[in-house]
């Protein structure tokens, strides 16, 4: 049924909608940060437009896919696209991990007087001793405590690992065309993602309210919240995508040999999973 020619859509109306949406979204944010009152409204309008665009765009793609317009080459292009997109995400996280490592290995020890930092320490921060976690010589944000690795974070690790397993089970079910099991495993995965997010927010509230740990808690707070925060954002997006795929499974989409949409989301989920493992290790454990 797949067509012989590479499918090239005639016109594309959604991208320009997406551009306008993105533009509204970010210029809304920018206005917001500058204290303008229309900022939030622009940002909301932008976000709504982007969501609309995604629905419309994906609907087009799904329709074309289900109509059999995509041959193997199109499928391969999608795969390439997804792989490189995930690679770009890896590099994005890399920047923040880089900041974490740089701060821990170089910046904080220098301020504490190690190596080339002798004079920095003795002239500017004679009282400061390098340690991790730290909120720096000025003690920005006041005293804080950190979240132990082997409490909630460990549970969260187990949850994400389990979700990696459930989505693989879903994939097997799809390959064997067991629709019921497929939907079940998908919903289980979504549920695990949501539980993860719930626990993560609980942890944030705890940090802000009881531990004194905030974004303003010096370099520790900065790296902690930016890394876990961006990860959380990705889990959120991933969960939504999983949910969409779950609905599609219910509607009878996908075939054992033709289900790239499913696979793309699964890859994404695994990527989010791996980021968490690295994060767990370097943010919480060591």
């Amino acid at each position: 049924m797949a067509s012989a020619n590479y499918y090239v859509p005639h016109t594309a109306k959604w991208p320009i909608v997406g551009s306008i949406g993105l533009f509204l979204l970010v210029s809304g944010f920018a206005n917001w940060m500058n204290g303008s009152t229309i900022g939030p409204w622009m940002a909301i309008a932008g976000a709504a437009t982007v969501i609309l665009m995604m629905f419309g765009w994906f609907a087009d793609v799904i329709r074309e896919s289900e109509a059999g317009l995509y041959n193997d080459k199109v499928d391969a292009s999608f795969r390439q696209g997804m792989i490189w997109f995930i690679f770009s995400e890896v590099m994005f996280f890399g920047a923040f991990f880089g900041a974490l490592f740089y701060a821990r290995i170089f910046a904080v020890p220098w301020i504490g007087g190690e190596g080339t930092g002798v004079m920095t320490n003795s002239l500017l921060y004679p009282e400061f001793q390098a340690a991790w976690p730290t909120n720096g010589p000025a003690g920005l944000g006041g005293d804080f405590k950190t979240i132990g690795a082997f409490e909630l974070p460990l549970i969260n690790t187990l949850i994400l690992l389990t979700s990696g397993w459930t989505i693989t089970m879903a994939h097997w079910a799809l390959k064997k065309m067991q629709r019921k099991a497929l939907v079940g495993w998908m919903l289980a995965t979504v549920a695990l993602g949501v539980i993860f997010l719930f626990l993560q927010s609980y942890e944030y509230v705890h940090a802000y309210r009881d531990l004194g740990l905030t974004l303003g808690s010096g370099i520790y707070g900065s790296t902690f919240f930016m890394l876990t925060g961006f990860h959380g954002l990705h889990v959120t997006v991933g969960s939504i995508m999983l949910l969409v795929i779950a609905f599609r499974c219910m509607k009878g989409h996908f075939k054992p040999d033709h289900h790239f949409g499913f696979e793309a989301v699964a890859w994404y989920w695994h990527f989010v999973d791996v980021v968490w493992l690295v994060l767990f290790l370097f943010v919480y454990v060591v």
Binding site: Y102, W110, N135, P137, G218, I219, M226
Partner: peptide
Amino acid sequence: DTSFFNAAGGGDPVMYQHI
């Protein structure tokens, strides 16, 4: 309020340059 590039909070302006 983050302090990636602020030495007072344990960051470093030079870190930005590396990234």
